[in-house]
């Protein structure tokens, strides 16, 4: 069997905090994500989702453990890892002073898309995302919906086999969020391996083929929604999450997470 495009083994990240001392943000995480699959990373705020995804995208270095993207290890071949994935999150904004067309060209070139095909690829995405009307307008002048389209196009411009979406709908209105989810489904259909982090249960239910529940940096369970239902005997993902996270008082747990 082929190796999965994304694989982690005992992935761990420890931060030092002046007040709290050593903080294990991610602890011994083992994950895999297959081609044509959306793996949901479901957890509350501060559960370790973003840190895990940042390690996979080589923005952060693991303290321990290993991770591979398309066979490239994150510490040994960080540039190859970054070239194999597209990373989308609320903290990956666009450059305001350049146009969508310039943005796509820049990211295609920097992410090693064959240089003789860059222009064709950019035009293909301009058509696909219907951004022709404002492709030469500076990003700073675009509406948030327009920016979102450009941002997604930016993420996929180099046609990476692996895509990471870190809480992508968090700042979007309902319609834009629906459109984004539809697009992510399309990408799955194209055979991409997709990691999708969210704390919105309904989103994970609708979109993800498998769900990994992460809490306090640890993966508590991984499986399809049906498998999780079967294991817990519960129907709703929210109930399943609460059961795994062993949260008796969700309000109190939320307060602790915020501390």
């Amino acid at each position: 069997m082929n190796k999965p495009p994304v694989r982690t083994q005992g992935l761990t990240k420890v931060f030092y905090d002046d007040n709290r001392g050593e903080v294990r943000a991610v602890d011994q995480v083992d994950l895999t994500c297959q081609k044509g699959e959306i793996l949901g990373l479901l957890g509350a705020n501060g559960a370790g989702k973003t840190t895990t995804l940042r390690m996979l995208s080589t923005v952060l270095q693991p303290t321990a453990g290993r991770a591979w993207v398309m066979g490239h290890e994150v510490r040994d071949e960080p540039e190859r890892v970054r070239g194999s994935l597209g990373f989308y999150s609320a903290s990956t904004a666009l450059y305001p002073k350049i146009t969508p067309r310039e943005t796509l060209r820049f990211f295609a070139r920097m992410n090693r898309y064959p240089s003789d095909q860059v222009d064709d690829r950019v035009e293909e995405l301009v058509r696909r995302f219907r951004i022709q009307d404002y492709a030469d307008t500076r990003v700073e002048k675009l509406s948030s919906g327009m920016k979102q389209k450009v941002s997604i196009a930016r993420t996929v411009v180099h046609d990476p086999p692996v895509l990471i979406f870190d809480e992508p709908t968090v700042a979007l209105d309902v319609l834009n969020a629906i459109e984004l989810r539809q697009f992510i489904s399309q990408l799955r259909g194209e055979g991409k391996a997709i990691l999708f982090s969210t704390h919105i249960m309904s989103e994970a239910e609708q979109l993800c083929d498998r769900i990994a529940i992460i809490h306090h940096g640890e993966i508590l369970a991984t499986g399809t929604l049906d498998e999780l239902r079967e294991t817990t005997g519960l129907h709703y993902l929210e109930e399943i999450f609460v059961r795994y996270a062993q949260v008796d008082d969700p309000v109190q747990a939320a307060r602790e997470n915020l501390r």
Binding site: E79, R82, F87, A90, T92, A93, Y95, N111, R154
Partner: peptide, 13 residues
Amino acid sequence: RSTWETLMTLAVP
């Protein structure tokens, strides 16, 4: 501008 992390995900050293 929140573009720093975007830049850090580029496939360059």
